[in-house]
Design a binder for these strands. Sequence first.
RNA 1: GGAGAGUUGGCUGAGUGGUCGAAAGCGCCUCCCUGCUAAGGAGGUAACUGGGCAACUGGUUCGAGGGUUCGAAUCCCUCACUCUCCGCCA
Length: 415
Amino acid sequence: MIDIKKLRDNLEGIESSLSKRGYKIDKSSFKSLDKKRKELQIDVESLQAERKTLSSDFGKLKASGKDTSDLKSVIDKNNHDLETKDVELQNILDEVNSLMLDIPNVPDESVPEGKNEDDNVVIKKYGEIKSKNTLDHLEITTHIDTDLAAKLAGSRFAVLKGDIAKLQRALITFMLDEASNNGYQEFYLPYIVNKESLIGTGQLPKFEEDQFKVSDRLYLSPTAEVQLTNMFRDKILDDIELPIKVTAHTSCFRSEAGSYGKDTRGLIRQHQFEKIELVQITHPTNSMDCLNDLLKNACQILDKLELPYQVIELCTGDLGFSSAKTFDIEVWMPSQNKYREISSCSNFSDFQARRSNIKFKDKKGNTFAHTINGSGLAVGRTLIALLENRFNGNDEIDLPECLVSYFGSKKVKLK
RNA sequence: GGAGAGUUGGCUGAGUGGUCGAAAGCGCCUCCCUGCUAAGGAGGUAACUGGGCAACUGGUUCGAGGGUUCGAAUCCCUCACUCUCCGCCA
């Protein structure tokens, strides 16, 4: 949710910012709605003030045992007027609100302009592409079994066996340790979350069909961003606590309703996958520094894993709904001969904080915080990248140095 | 699954129809006092939001939503959540 005051004060400015990301705001309907809102609100509030004094007069009259019927008819009229005006006001407020909920976040000034993903900007490439391998991960190892998973659950699931299952476990521990070393407090979280939480981080109401619903009010969490951010929902933090850095490993669940036929093979796009998430709650003045910090934390993991990757900055046209600025980290996937997203690091400015009511307190008063998050990293995709980049035709691969102690051996058996 | 008790400000917790946005305590802020520290004293301290250049001045909010009433934190209904005991269980 963007700030309605900013919209009132600077409609043209917001309009041009939003047009850069391809969103056209309905200026004239906002203006006329807001004008009506103002008139009605003034009416309603003065009628409410009137009711207060009339009611207290009524009480006094009654207490002194005098006749109240004249006053009663005045009160009745006032209440009747109030009710009609109030209904009108509520209707207008509902309209304003749904208009506001539909408006995406305003891109940061620094975000490169562009229409779609073709206009994203490669910031830097890291590591050397050495692999000559063309086989994909399902061809490299027999220990990723999607048929078996289909028997148990359905498509877009996987069973990992033996060393591959163990390697996933090692990766999770490694990534969590990296996050802890970088100052993130580790959490273990519920995988099921309520509606309020999903609304807070922006998955609801707009993206309901992407979620797995387990009951009337409960959903499987699509990312630990939801839990880690909503821990601070409805809180007023102390400014000296900022930035707050938190992390967790969770299984993540996505229905992938909109991706029929996309990445149907293997581990790339699953209904259930493992992810380590990094979240920071920051002061508005240095949130961009915090984003760079978080990006560095995520990149560092790929550096240690010795995997080639690139960092791209999303252009205005490709930004997610809630994001003000996003860097994607893409790891080299030899079988596809291209880079694939393995982490998305975003500054949401006060967009999520406004929805989830996360504030901090300083001498000037209470202000919405900024929220930052990114994966550190997506575990399944990291696993694939390791297999594909390190495969050299044998029945086992060598692990990078950083994983050896976590895995307990230097070699991973593929068959 | 059965039975019961709750949900009030940053926290603890009083408040059963108007004088209640709300006692008291804790915490926090300002000041006073004391050579430092400890203790003590005075005052202040909820959030959200409208109008106004401003001084200022309205409104809303006591888990959520309805209802009764001239008037609801307080009475009634529905829902959500939390806790305790019993049962079951990793």
